[in-house]
Simulated scan of single mutants.
Amino acid sequence: MSDADKPRLVVAEPNLAPSAGGGIEQVIVPRTRDLGGFAVRRALPVAGRRMVGPFIFLDQMGPAEFPIGEGVDVRPHPHIGLATVTYLFDGAIDHRDSLGTVQTIYPGDVNWMSAGRGIAHSERTGPQDRLRGARLSGLQLWVALPKEHEDSAPFFAHHETTDLPIVSDGGVRVRLIAGEAYGVRSPVVTAWDTVFADIALEAGARLPIDAATEERALYLVDGIVEIAGDRFEPGRLLVLRPSDTFTVAAVTAARFSLIGGATMDGSRHIWWNFVSSSTERLEQAKADWKAGRFSPVPGETDFIPLPEFGG
């Protein structure tokens, strides 16, 4: 095969690369941020792409290894107008929130916390994991709530890995976290048309991506995949062209997430941990957190103060 015929390895520079063709509208390279002890790659939001369906925020956490006695310590902080979605590949996180929820999340589980009109929560490495040296790898995403649900009552839902449907065939394994795809439906309740799947391909395996979902993107976690002659490496968010269908081929063993859903019902504003269709509502949330009007998180005595410039 001549050099001209060889598939190209697409290596983009932050934050957006030109379309690679073959159904790819944008290639987004996440920004790396240090959260004090471990790094995250932030793929959404970026300039030129605020949302994919209802997904308005996507962080890849780790992979990270902590010395014995250390771990993640995200103090209580507030949210409005969104649902946080935590999905781990490795490690564990203890979740506490102002509803009184105490829940440890493990790989393959999903924590879906809908903030609605307001909730506070913390995320920490548990004491047993600190004793043996903690690890952490996974995704945290935010899903914007539709306008009619932005001020709804907050709630928390946890689904264990055994609750989530799996489709497995010919070197392909799909765990459906939210929505409907590949003939199965997730039990996770969402307020908007949403799809979220954790997909693993053995080397040489192929998976068709249909156009049933209005907006779609693939976040590449591990391995190299090929789409219409272009190769893509890990740590890339591939935003797909609406209505295009194509096949993902695994050059190596690969893992990626499919996210998306219907186009959101209007634009959203983000300030720190707050999301809203109304800037006035953001100002109220700032004032409420600063004045201590959010309900406290039981068992926690500390909190993250309101940032001076939006965080």
Rank of each mutant, 00 (worst) to 15 (best):
residue 90 D to C: 01
residue 199 I to L: 13
residue 135 R to V: 12
residue 165 P to A: 10
residue 195 V to E: 00
residue 145 L to C: 08
residue 180 E to H: 07
residue 148 E to Q: 14
residue 94 D to V: 08
residue 212 A to E: 14
residue 181 A to Y: 01
residue 165 P to N: 11
residue 171 G to L: 00
residue 114 S to E: 15
residue 189 V to H: 02
residue 92 A to Y: 04
residue 176 L to G: 04
residue 176 L to E: 00
residue 156 F to S: 15
residue 178 A to G: 11
residue 105 I to H: 12
residue 170 G to S: 14
residue 130 R to T: 08
residue 90 D to E: 15
residue 208 P to H: 08
residue 122 S to M: 01
residue 113 M to K: 04
residue 127 P to D: 05
residue 102 V to A: 15
residue 165 P to D: 08
residue 207 L to P: 09
residue 130 R to C: 07
residue 110 V to R: 14
residue 179 G to K: 05
residue 127 P to C: 04
residue 194 T to W: 08
residue 96 R to T: 11
residue 216 R to G: 03
residue 114 S to H: 03
residue 148 E to H: 14
residue 168 S to I: 06
residue 126 G to W: 00
residue 155 F to A: 10
residue 211 A to S: 15
residue 75 R to Y: 09
residue 83 A to M: 08
residue 85 V to Y: 11
residue 112 W to P: 00
residue 151 D to W: 06
residue 201 L to M: 08
residue 83 A to V: 05
residue 212 A to T: 12
residue 141 L to H: 02
residue 216 R to V: 03
residue 135 R to D: 05
residue 103 Q to C: 12
residue 124 R to S: 06
residue 107 P to G: 08
residue 139 L to C: 03
residue 209 I to V: 14
residue 166 I to K: 11
residue 195 V to H: 06
residue 214 E to L: 11
residue 150 E to L: 02
residue 202 E to I: 03
residue 102 V to Y: 04
residue 210 D to S: 10
residue 204 G to S: 12
residue 168 S to L: 04
residue 141 L to S: 09
residue 123 E to R: 11
residue 171 G to W: 04
residue 148 E to I: 15
residue 187 P to K: 15
residue 96 R to P: 05
residue 191 A to I: 05
residue 115 A to R: 03
residue 198 D to S: 13
residue 134 A to I: 05
residue 134 A to G: 07
residue 191 A to T: 08
residue 152 S to Q: 05
residue 211 A to H: 07
residue 120 A to W: 05
residue 185 R to L: 06
residue 158 H to K: 02
residue 175 R to T: 13
residue 191 A to M: 10
residue 201 L to A: 10
residue 204 G to A: 09
residue 160 E to G: 15
residue 97 D to N: 12
residue 77 H to G: 10
residue 208 P to R: 08
residue 164 L to Y: 03
residue 205 A to K: 03
residue 149 H to R: 13
residue 121 H to R: 10
residue 198 D to H: 10
residue 85 V to K: 04
residue 166 I to W: 03
residue 145 L to T: 06
residue 122 S to I: 01
residue 153 A to Y: 13
residue 156 F to D: 13
residue 81 G to A: 09
residue 174 V to K: 01
residue 172 V to R: 12
residue 210 D to T: 14
residue 127 P to L: 04
residue 112 W to N: 05
residue 164 L to M: 05
residue 183 G to A: 07
residue 79 H to P: 01
residue 172 V to N: 04
